[in-house]
């Protein structure tokens, strides 16, 4: 090591994380509580404060909304891939279905955004789940291929049959009453779904989901219908995507074919890789980084994609465990130089 000092050696202490976070020790002293609460408070406080902090930069407020939409998709992807074992490339489909549901409810029934967004989340989730039902026996890369087909197919069908406004899409939708509503709806939805999903995976039902991923034969032999659980998981994941899509439609006052775009399938996966799969928080951090990076690189023009690709590759090569896994490990370790 280059910075190795003479007579000194680096000592690494792993804190007893199990003891520190489980049971009464965790609330025995304010330092212990801070140890647990600080990272959580940082994320929650940071996300809640972000719209206020960015209020001088309206452009970045809009970027924050986009980050939240990608983050909703990414935690859905992470849940489905790392806890249920279904690698879904259907993100674009979820967004598109959510956007079109919200747009139809708004333009045909005249419902305000505050009603269409939850309704589109629910209806969109149900539509996606029903359409994915025939693919549920598939696993791994086979499920990925079939789920990638959905957004491509949906866009072509709308184009060919000229339904829902055809290539023009559905225009003239109501927007949110203000930018604050738009951002806080998204930030709160993100925080709530993050909390619920992190809770879900450590509950008993979460173990069943993990069982479906690790050893579906044993789950079948345990008298549990795995198709039901896969269906529930796809519903959760697609409803998150539909929520994002519905908000997106109201942000742009428009629902169109580009909302079935592959960006919504691919970027959440990249964010999960960068942020750390299986952590659920990691993908959120990944989205913040990737969307921010992509905005910063706008000045580079066409080179933007090249730089973007380089950064992604660097992450995969040098930190394949992802930011969140790395940070958690370091947070629970002390490193110090000791005199020999």
């Amino acid at each position: 090591m280059a910075n190795q000092k003479k007579d000194h050696r680096k000592e690494r202490l792993d804190r007893g994380i199990k003891v520190r976070t489980d049971g009464v020790y965790a609330i025995s002293h304010w330092t212990e509580m801070t140890y647990l609460l600080a990272p959580r408070a940082l994320l929650i406080g940071g996300l809640l404060a972000a719209p206020l902090i960015l209020s001088y930069f309206p452009y970045w407020q809009r970027v924050l909304s986009i980050i939240c939409i990608y983050a909703l998709l990414a935690i859905g992807f992470d849940f489905l891939a790392n806890y249920v074992g279904l690698v879904s490339l259907g993100g674009g489909f979820y967004v598109g279905v959510g956007a079109y549901c919200a747009a139809l409810l708004n333009s045909h029934l005249g419902l305000p955004p505050i009603v269409t967004v939850p309704l589109a989340t629910l209806i969109g989730g149900i539509i996606c789940t029903i359409l994915f039902l025939p693919c549920l026996p598939l696993r791994g890369v086979y499920f990925a291929i079939v789920s990638l087909m959905f957004p491509l197919l949906a866009a072509r069908i709308i184009e060919a049959l000229n339904i829902f406004g055809g290539t023009d899409g559905i225009m003239g939708l109501d927007g949110f009453s203000s930018g604050w509503v738009e951002q806080y709806v998204l930030v709160c939805a993100l925080l709530v779904s993050l909390f619920v999903l992190r809770r879900l995976v450590i509950e008993d039902v979460g173990l069943v989901f993990r069982g479906v991923k690790d050893n579906d034969q044993a789950v079948k032999a345990s008298a549990i219908n795995i198709t039901t659980y896969k269906g529930i998981a796809v519903f959760i994941s697609s409803a998150l995507g539909c929520l994002g899509g519905a908000t997106l439609a109201h942000i742009y006052n428009w629902a169109g074919l580009s909302q079935f775009g592959l960006d919504y399938s691919i970027i959440p996966i990249a964010a999960t890789v960068v942020g750390g799969g299986g952590t659920l928080v990691g993908p959120v951090i990944g989205c913040i980084l990737l969307v921010w990076l992509s905005e910063e690189l706008r000045d580079l023009g066409t080179l933007r994609i090249a730089v973007y690709a380089l950064v992604l590759t660097a992450f995969i090569v040098f930190k394949s465990e992802g930011i969140m896994n790395f940070a958690t490990r370091k947070y629970q370790q002390f490193e110090r130089w000791v005199h020999i």
Partner: peptide, 17 residues
């Protein structure tokens, strides 16, 4: 193929569910 990362008794949560 048990769920290797989990404690042994957590493996029984699935059938008990």
């Amino acid at each position: 193929r048990p769920y290797y990362s989990l404690p042994a008794f957590k493996n029984l949560i699935v059938p008990l569910f």
